[in-house]
Amino acid sequence: MDNNIVRTPLLETVDLQKYFKIGKNSYLHAVDGINLKLHAGETIGVVGESGCGKSTLGRTILKLIEPTGGKILYDGQDITKYKNSQMHPLRKEMQIIFQDPYSSIDPRKSVIEVIAEYMLIHKVYKTRAEAFNRAVQLMDMVGLARRYTNSYPHELDGGRRQRIGVARALSLNPRFIVCDEPVSALDVSIQAQILNLLMDLQEQLDLAYMFVTHDLSVVKHISDNIMVMYLGRCVELAPSDELFANPQHPYTKALLAAIPEPDLIRSRTKKLEVIRGEVTSPIDPKPGCRFAARCEHCDKCGGRCTESNPEFVEVSPGHFVSCFLVNDK
């Protein structure tokens, strides 16, 4: 590092863990030792299949779920043990956009009430009218026509509802937003509209995003760094372009290969590489690499991956991988 100024990351997690107790001595390891750093104005993509703990990670960071272990540092302060009352002022800075634009909006509130709600909670404005004025400005910002001000959510389509979700998240001028699969419930043409909107807003407002998704192709466009999660652990973390150009972990490779590409020649010539098996249970996982049961190179590392967890090693600047095969090189 040549620059002397070390920027404090806006958000940092150190060995963050969240276990859900599901039986007497049985725990579901939803998030298991995640380290990440996120600077203002940057986006980190968190990718993984259902059940890998990516949504839990986002909610734990926002303290909507209490973490089991590890630390969450927001703007240098350790918020891990913060109570609800201590979190209250921070809620203005950390927001979330939900996956399902249908269930995340109270069906009995009109559009403007939904958008103004957070401002009223935090008493940002003295009067209701001022909050509503700001809500209308937010509607303009996210591209919602003013005629929908008093519509009820069920009268709007998914794309417009998701814009409500975005406007609501922006209403308190946050610095950090967890986007939990914000486009996966939307059609492709609408998906592109929302992605562009999120990117524009980031540029204007210097927002930091944690973009949680199962769709690698979506994060590629919006992320600076991408973290690939498998069963609660991070298997690979790399700058976006690097990850696509040079994936190292067998799981990342499999994920990339599994995306059906809208390219006739490539899809007809490319041999369909399919990884076997399905995601194993996150309940009291066996020691070792979580991916071992599905990994085709499992025998090549001499059985180490079923005994101990591979280290998280930096293979090139900013590119970390957790796999014995790669670590050996």
């Binding site: 609408i190 592109a192 509209q193 590409e261």
Partner: peptide, 14 residues
């Protein structure tokens, strides 16, 4: 509209 895996364009064209 589809995010393309191979191109390097940063903006999508919805």
């Amino acid at each position: 509209s589809i995010p393309n895996l191979t191109s390097r364009a940063t903006r999508l064209k919805p």
